[in-house]
Design a protein around this nucleic acid. Structure first.
Lengths: 121, 121
DNA sequence: TCTACAGTCAAGCATACGCTTGACTGTTTG
DNA sequence: CAAACAGTCAAGCGTATGCTTGACTGTAGA
């Protein structure tokens, strides 16, 4: 409960209760969105994931494509694997990763499209 | 240049030069994608931006919708404004923010769709 | 003019993150 | 078996980030 002496904070219903009431249930369903998006919120990691949405690649190739060390590439692949976005298979000395969460593909496409059109003149 | 004594790092062309060569130019065009996505990579900030893609809102209402203090809402709105994603207008004591970068809308839709379908049984 | 309120801003804290480093695992080849 | 190599992992670093706090600005109404 809020005390009378608490700092002024707009509470439950504020200036436009209609809009707020309409939006709150929808926005409430977005819990966890930040964590989901965080998997893409880094240049190197986004590139890693994008590359694998295009082609199955070994760690070594991933590193070459995104311009990172194999340790850094492995670090990002591990994160992506732990969150279920990529899967891997071992073939001799090589480990091949690929996108396993196909539902992520439209997100990748929307973002790449956004970034590429941003560079237009 | 790499010295012979450097740690083993897969360099320019690695195991599958064809795939690497095909992907590198595309991936190279994605510089800055992490910074762009970082604007969405937080629960509160994503909700703030999503709410404004649906309706023009004052800071107070934004705070109520996402469940944050006005200071926190203002903090996120400032970031979004500085990166050009939202704009604002003053009306009396209230400040109304709204989505100004319409190209972001498909990205928001793709991500919300991804998050909402993820919660399906 | 005085009070109240919406919003802003800067300082500071606690935490999280990306990457390097160096040691280690597992596999192939001589 | 030994050497070479792809990849993994944990520790540690510098830095960035989200949010609180408290002071401040600008506007409205009594």
């Amino acid at each position: 409960m809020r005390k009378q002496t608490d700092p002024p904070v707009c509470e439950v219903e504020c200036v436009h209760a209609d809009k707020v009431d309409a939006l709150r249930p929808v926005v409430g369903g977005l819990n966890g969105v930040g964590e989901a998006v965080a998997n893409l919120a880094d240049d190197t990691r986004f590139k890693v994931l994008y590359a694998q949405s295009q082609s199955e690649l070994c760690v070594c190739d991933v590193a070459a494509v995104v311009g990172a060390t194999t340790a850094a590439a492995s670090y990002h692949l591990r994160l992506l694997y732990r969150t279920g976005l990529v899967d891997y298979r071992r073939d001799g000395r090589l480990v091949y990763y690929r996108l396993s969460e196909e539902r992520m593909r439209p997100v990748l496409e929307a973002i790449t499209s956004y970034v590429l059109t941003a560079q237009m003149p």
